[in-house]
């Protein structure tokens, strides 16, 4: 069962990462940003926007399946830890340097997400107890 969760969490992160990379590439190929139909046409004319939709749909169904079986705390964390995978892939594929503010900011955000995930686990464990 533990292997099932781990696979699910990794799949969720992979779908989220695919979606974010696709969002970025869809936007970059549709520059400049203008509030008109021409910008919409540029966005939907190239394949990346559909990669973003596919990533979102994949993440949605993985999330719903995970929620049915996995504890909410780790599932919550996994659904937000893609910030790390996206940052690493951006450094590799988009040549965005791993600057100090990015690494420090990411570490702080991840610490916060882990606290929030632990808080979810706390409520799950405490709530059904006889003293709760």
């Amino acid at each position: 069962m533990r292997r099932f969760y781990l696979f699910g969490f990794l799949l969720l992160m992979a779908f989220d990462t695919l979606a974010q990379l696709s969002f970025k590439l869809a936007g970059s190929h549709a520059l400049p940003v203008t509030a008109d139909a021409a910008w919409l046409a540029r966005v939907f004319a190239q394949p990346w926007v559909y990669g973003a939709v596919a990533g979102y749909i994949g993440a949605f169904f993985t999330w719903m399946t995970l929620l049915r079986h996995a504890p909410i705390g780790p599932a919550f964390a996994a659904s937000h830890l893609e910030v790390v995978s996206v940052m690493l892939l951006s450094a590799w594929l988009l040549h965005e340097p791993l600057t100090l503010p990015r690494v420090l900011g990411a570490a702080t955000i991840v610490a916060g997400i882990l606290c929030l995930a632990a808080a979810e686990r706390e409520t799950l464990v405490v709530a059904p107890g006889p003293a709760g």
Binding site: Q20, L21, F23, K24, A26, G27, S28, A30, L31, V33, E82, V83, V86, M87, S90, A91, L94, E96, L98, R102, G105, A106, I109
Partner: peptide, 11 residues
């Protein structure tokens, strides 16, 4: 996202 680096955007 098209206006900021992706790393900064998701963070």
């Amino acid at each position: 996202l098209s206006l900021v680096p992706l790393s900064d955007g998701v963070l």
